[in-house]
Design a protein around this nucleic acid. Sequence first.
DNA 1: TTAATAATGATAATCATTATCATTTAATTT
DNA 2: AAATTAAATGATAATGATTATCATTATTAA
Lengths: 159, 159
Amino acid sequence: MRYRRGFRGGFLKRISRWTKSRMAILDVFRRVKGHLSADEVFLRLRKNYPNIGIATVYRNLDYLHKKGILSRFQFGNNKASYELSEKFLKGVQHHHHLICTNCGKVIDYTDFIKEETDLIREMEKALSKKYGFKIQSHQLHFYGICKDCMKGGDQNAVG
Amino acid sequence: MRYRRGFRGGFLKRISRWTKSRMAILDVFRRVKGHLSADEVFLRLRKNYPNIGIATVYRNLDYLHKKGILSRFQFGNNKASYELSEKFLKGVQHHHHLICTNCGKVIDYTDFIKEETDLIREMEKALSKKYGFKIQSHQLHFYGICKDCMKGGDQNAVG
DNA sequence: TTAATAATGATAATCATTATCATTTAATTT
DNA sequence: AAATTAAATGATAATGATTATCATTATTAA
Ligand SMILES: [Mn+2]
Ligand SMILES: [Mn+2]
Ligand SMILES: [Zn+2]
Ligand SMILES: [Zn+2]
């Protein structure tokens, strides 16, 4: 997985200071597939950066999100999770999510993205005009019951 | 606005006890268009039910959501908001949301619902099969900058 | 009316996130 | 390389949202 064209000249340029902890946080996301909450990032970091503070993690997640490097999600469990933006890293493809309301599992899917993109593009154009709203991103979430919970009952029930 | 067929025989039947506060909370949603957070519901209730507790509000929002009467959203401001489910009340139409990342405003839109529903139906079928995931609902969120924030700058900036 | 128990209100506790502030550090300038 | 400057950090207090606890009350069905 390589950086997209424009990584150093584009995204990196927007970052005012390339700190040790900021690099480390971004490294975590490069290594991990999927979504991480602030405390999950914090736990993974403590191994190599035992002095890092949780506030620094929160600050940088927010910062990197504002810079367009991380996408931010709230799947319904009262905490934010983040993943690398598809705009930032080559290999992250546009995708959406299936969220199990029983166990909290989140599944990425990339099916129907072509059809979806066509429709979304059209919608964005019309909605922008109608509501004077400048659309920057979209999220499509499907809520339901995952395969495991379907058979197994609620042994892993969330909440 | 009248209840959908099946209100008394359907939704009401699933509710174990039809309490004063539970009725009052549902009444708030019937009167208000749009999304309400727990504390917003609580504030509106205090007028007529000065003894109601905030915990009761939280419990009932969760309860009514689990019963399919309220839809639950997390638009990215770290708190849940609710609205009447389209399945529950006649007059609530299927819609999605534009969320301003600057001021937090949420706009309902009902445009493109026909086209969207066609695609979503197809996707749900395929995703259900592929992932063994029983889909119950979906949410489509557009994030961006609203009209007011576009012109006015960040005078009402959120967070 | 009584019995069973779901629901409530008060409030403590928890969890996620943000604010404060003195200190450190990255980047820029001399 | 040393000095400068402001962004960033870590510790931790504070806040905001939500959940847990528990004794009491109210709803429902018998
Ligand atoms: Mn994802
Ligand atoms: Mn809505
Ligand atoms: Zn599940
Ligand atoms: Zn706005």
